[in-house]
Design a protein around this nucleic acid. Sequence first.
DNA 1: TTTATATTTGCAACAGAGTTGCGTTATGAG
DNA 2: CTCATAACGCAACTCTGTTGCAAATATAAA
Lengths: 128, 128
Amino acid sequence: MSKTSRNTIARQKILELINSKKTAISHSSLQEELEGVCDRVTTYRVLERLVNESLIHRIVNVNGVVNYAPCQTCSHKEQHIHQHIHFSCISCGTIRCITDHPIAITLPENYSATEYQLTIAGTCPECL
Amino acid sequence: MSKTSRNTIARQKILELINSKKTAISHSSLQEELEGVCDRVTTYRVLERLVNESLIHRIVNVNGVVNYAPCQTCSHKEQHIHQHIHFSCISCGTIRCITDHPIAITLPENYSATEYQLTIAGTCPECL
DNA sequence: TTTATATTTGCAACAGAGTTGCGTTATGAG
DNA sequence: CTCATAACGCAACTCTGTTGCAAATATAAA
Ligand SMILES: [Mn+2]
Ligand SMILES: [Mn+2]
Ligand SMILES: [Zn+2]
Ligand SMILES: [Zn+2]
């Protein structure tokens, strides 16, 4: 029934690269660092696969560009939900998951949430 | 010093249209509803102008698409900051500003925030 | 009202992100 | 090892947004 995910070279290298980073990475940066390991279309498809397998998650930056980061402290109870802030530094350009900081976000009555994109842009501690 | 913003027909119609909506609207939908009032490039430039004048604000949806909504309950103290949730319904497709609901978001020490994009996707009360 | 000037516009061309179709390659279960 | 099918590369495409430039026009000054 469920398609089995094959452990291809492209998939290995991409997951390795993402996991080796302390900050999130975009498709284009990833493609550069892969140095010809695979086609850019393949990178898109591998990223989609890794997201579906809950190994990485998508971060939509304030400028609309998508970045990817490993899943670590995500909730996997009923479904896989990422309810944490992402900080995007306008100085050094890094995007970081702020997973160790409490936030209180609730919705009004009768709203049902499935996906969170909580991105804040500004200056990070290193650049302040 | 400061360029004076001219009240052109395109600007009038675009601002009218955005203000007439209860939900946010994207550039492409806007362009359709304008029915040939102006070129799509002009629409982009007018939108940019209206954002700079703090009459409307940009909402980056969870899919990365930009939408625009009137500024209403925004803070204008030191700078114009929009610190409220946007809800994107995956059923009816509408994007709504949740301005009448308290949220508590703080950042760890030494992070300085300048822009917030707090978008939550799910099902809205009308579609639940 | 007329004139002057800087802002705004339309058009064409471009750039970047992401998607799709299809024929080929290669993973991994049996 | 065999082989079904997941994954791949390539080319072509869509969608969103940007830029340069000459023409049009809003507005303030004459
Ligand atoms: Mn994260
Ligand atoms: Mn809003
Ligand atoms: Zn920084
Ligand atoms: Zn809805």
